[in-house]
Design a protein around this nucleic acid. Structure first.
Lengths: 191, 191
DNA sequence: GGGAAATCCGGACTGTCAGTCCGGATAGCG
DNA sequence: CGCTATCCGGACTGACAGTCCGGATTTCCC
């Protein structure tokens, strides 16, 4: 194992350029403006480079998503309560939904594009499995009588980019998150 | 309005052939085997015919889905309780979820393909709006304190072809439906 | 500082697909 | 039986994901 030489400087530079170009295209046009040709051109890089770095379209978007959610992931595993370990499960759950909601609301277009690209194995994606595992644990701790695994899928299924855009009015960017939290509260039986 | 001459016999025949070919391709290969070229070829029809009838890929899949769910739609508006009007809202809700679940479980591949094709306006689709309206009403009647519109979206978001396949073990085809019903029961606060 | 070898780059190339278009065929009507 | 609205089919376009390899860079070691 290992032996892994460090990434070459030009490779690293290009990776940043590609990610940045992707963000830019996502921001300016819809998710459908993000063809890998365009990404490569805007990044000032060949198409092959994009694929070598990220494997495919899904990998590219996943990398971006991963970047946007790393902080939450760390807060959830190692951070202070109520996000991190230590707080009672229902509180942690609401805090987690708040964090995930904020990311989703801020990246709805990226979310849509990622869902579209993932196609077949959205549920195998490591990121998804992490969120699912975390939610699952919290739900099981709060309501051992329910099917926590299923409910975790159900809660996550609501984090759909299109739905979020559909439900977020201008001027109330956190409305979606509040709705999700209300739903979770109702599920926990304190509604 | 109207004046609409009846559909020509060859046109009707071809429409059936196309729908049938689509079913067949969905059944034998994954949803990705259903390119409109292939559908046309298998139906023994030109590609133009497929597009003239159904507008685009999404329209074709929607037509198939519509066909599979017409019965439920009618039962819900005009049928006998507990599906139709008359029964208490919570009962109607569970009956409705049972019916929708059955359709979804039996057409998971079609569902996935449709979601994939709809892309941008899944939430404008008349079929979606009907289910959403119905669910919304039942939820509002059962739990006026919650955000029924959002919960209806949340319940529907779980009807994802990939998720259903992911959660349906061989030998227990109704497991998904039961989980959804359990969730709805919990939301209604009788869990 | 210099040279060899691993690593990376770029863009031309392939195969596929959704969707368009129009000359020619056909059904339905009188 | 003939006329016209309607429909048919498949060639055509444009766009995209993903592959491939000759040539350029970088890094490592001396």
């Amino acid at each position: 194992m290992a032996g892994q030489r460090a990434e070459r400087a030009d490779a690293a530079r290009n990776r940043r350029a590609v990610l940045h170009a992707t963000e830019q295209l996502l921001a300016e046009g819809g998710g459908d403006r993000v063809s890998l040709d365009r990404v490569a051109t805007l990044a000032g890089v060949g198409k092959g480079t994009v694929f070598r770095r990220f494997g495919n379209r899904a990998g590219l978007l996943q990398a971006l998503l991963e970047e946007r959610s790393r902080e939450l992931r760390e807060a959830v595993t190692d951070g202070a309560p109520p996000l991190g370990p230590g707080a009672p499960a229902p509180e942690r759950l609401l805090a987690f939904l708040d964090g995930l909601g904020a990311i989703a609301e801020g990246n709805a277009v990226l979310l849509s594009a990622h869902e579209q690209a993932c196609a077949e194995d959205k549920y195998g994606d490591p990121s998804y499995r992490f969120w699912h595992g975390h939610l699952s644990g919290l739900l099981a701790a709060s309501r051992p009588d329910l099917d926590a695994g299923f409910l975790a899928h159900a809660l996550l299924s609501v984090f759909d980019g299109d739905l979020i855009r559909h439900l977020t009015p201008p001027g109330d960017p956190r409305r979606f998150t509040r709705s999700v939290q209300q739903m979770a509260t109702a599920l926990l039986g304190q509604g």
